[in-house]
C-alpha cells in the first residue's frame, strides 16, 4: 500500500501510510473524522453540513475514460470546499493538468502505473494550459 505515489506540482512523493479516509456512510457516524472517500457518482449535496468539518476529500477515478470526478471536484469547489482535494485511481499524465484546473490539489496512483508512467511523463504534461484560463480571466 505504501508504494502508492502522490503526484503534486512538486513531482512524485509517497502517500502518507498513516492517513485514513472513510466512506461517506462511516463519516457521518464518526463526528471526529475529517477525511472522506467519494465515488464518482456521489451527489455532493449528500455531504450536507458535514462538508464544513472535512479537511480532505479523495475522489475515485475508476477508469481513464470516466470523467465524472472532474465535474464533482468543480462542484465541491463551487460549494466552498477549501480543503485538500485528491484524484485517485486510473488517471494518465494527460489528465494531471485537467485535475488541477478542476480544483484538485494532487493525484494518487498505484505503483504499477508509476513505474509504467514515470515522473517525467507527468511533469511534461503538467505545464499544458488551455483556453479556459483566458475566458475565465476578469475583463481588463
Amino acid at each position: 500500500m505504501s508504494d502508492r505515489v502522490l503526484i503534486t506540482d512538486a513531482g512524485f512523493g509517497p502517500v502518507d501510510p498513516a492517513e485514513r479516509y472513510l466512506g461517506l456512510a462511516d463519516l457521518v457516524a464518526a463526528p471526529g473524522a475529517q477525511r472522506v472517500d467519494l465515488g464518482p457518482e456521489t451527489d455532493p449535496a449528500a455531504l450536507g453540513p458535514d462538508l464544513a468539518r472535512i479537511q480532505a476529500i479523495r475522489i475515485a477515478f475508476p477508469a481513464v475514460s470516466d470523467g465524472r470526478g472532474f465535474t464533482l471536484a468543480r462542484t465541491l469547489r463551487r460549494m466552498g470546499f477549501t480543503g485538500r482535494l485528491r484524484a485517485a485511481g486510473q488517471l494518465i499524465p494527460e489528465q494531471y493538468p485537467m485535475t488541477r484546473a478542476c480544483g484538485f490539489d494532487e493525484v494518487e496512483i498505484d505503483a504499477d502505473r508509476a513505474r509504467r508512467q514515470p515522473e517525467a511523463d507527468w511533469r511534461a504534461a503538467a505545464r499544458r494550459q488551455g483556453y479556459l484560463a483566458r475566458l475565465r480571466r476578469p475583463a481588463a
Partner: peptide, 13 residues
Amino acid sequence: RQWSSDHPEFQYL
C-alpha cells in the same frame, strides 16, 4: 471552439 478545446472538465464525457 475555444471554450471546449481541451476543456479540463469535459474531455472524458
